[in-house]
Design a protein around this nucleic acid. Structure first.
Lengths: 128, 128, 128, 128
DNA sequence: GTGGTCTAGACCACC
DNA sequence: GTGGTCTAGACCACT
């Protein structure tokens, strides 16, 4: 899987890592139970610090996206992805709110927004 | 207009300010051309430093949401809001992408996402 | 003569006034010895404070562009415009330097810059 | 690179910094991709507050002259300088206009002005 | 009274 | 170590 980092982004590198792995699962490029590179290997591959990869993996584990086994290494959670909890929905709304407010302000209609959302949805699901 | 700040949030205070003012315009609570509080007044009202407010105002001005008149004060841009540029759409997609990837991963359908979006859209537009 | 002020410009209003009057003389719209509106009238016409107009006139007088007579009012200096002094040339170079550096940085050639300069020169001289 | 600040100038210190760095790039003293001093180092070197340097760097970043890498430092944009956009040309004309009007008023010919411009252009390009 | 600038000094996240 | 954010308090130009 190809990881694409923007070193100038305001987003921390570990967050970018988290999102790229989540997107990998969302697109099907990463299967449930599939092994991920070790912290050490991934860090070397993408040229970032060990701590950075570690932080990303730890966050992914906390949210239930991956499992970290002492010896076997890191795998995408074979029991499936975390469910849509109320906490998640609240967080999602908080993140969407300012984006939608800005769009509304600039005159985008609900339909236009829906189209953008739908576009991205399909783009992630079928990245080929 | 009521400003609601979360001092514990990971979002910088000035960003929260920016979004709340944008939402104020989006909801119609702030009219085009309407005066905003002076830097110092707003800072005192919400209990933050004047530089923090200043930064928020400066960002809003850069994006064309407000005008800062020399020694007269700050007003919502009377010439209307900034348009939907390609830059804006790109930025919007970049912000939406990880949110949608996460939703997809957890099994939300496109329709469910659209409903959430629609909900928030109306919530902002009709906050009563 | 039509005065055009930009209340949002970073340039102080009195400076804008100074430049517009200088441009009026440069274009020939204002003749040597021609009367300018009184401080009071001009302030009322363009909707700014008396002090602002006063400051502009005072600066113009200091540089020798106009004369201010107690009773007769304000006139464009009938003895001609101030000469090209070394001080003026130094000030001019200081002002031009950052503009030219920026142009050079972005890849404008000396010829392109000269064309822009020539354009503006003619535009001011023949504003019709 | 030697930075020369005039603390008495009407130009804000951060603007002087911006222009000096742009001139450094224009003259070739600063190469594309070259590292600039950290905010704190530069501030200490030239004896100003770190916020002042920060503001200069932020402005340079906004215009595309430099890149600010997360926790790694500041470099001259390795992808080249920002292009000559219409916005830039408009801003340039606005800045040149009053300077040219004044010169015209005092009787400088187009050729004299062109010579001054050419002088400064070469002076910046070949500062030795 | 307005925003613009500057200082001094602090804490934080990231790497 | 880096930049990002925030505070407190000051002076200035402009209107």
């Amino acid at each position: 899987m190809i990881i694409n980092l923007d070193m100038q982004s305001e987003l921390p590198i570990y967050s970018q890592l988290v999102y790229q792995i989540i997107e990998g699962v969302a697109s099907g490029e990463l299967q449930l139970g599939e092994a991920l590179p070790s912290v050490r290997n991934l860090a070397a591959d993408i040229g970032v610090n060990l701590h950075t990869v570690n932080k990303a993996y730890t966050l992914l584990k906390q949210d239930g996206y991956i499992q970290i086994h002492r010896q076997k290494g890191v795998v995408v959670n074979p029991d499936g992805m975390p469910p849509v909890t109320d906490d998640f929905l609240n967080k999602q709304r908080q993140e969407l709110r300012p984006i939608i407010a800005e769009a509304l302000c600039r005159g985008m209609s609900k339909e236009e927004l829906s189209t953008v959302l739908s576009d991205i949805y399909e783009e992630i699901k079928h990245p080929y």
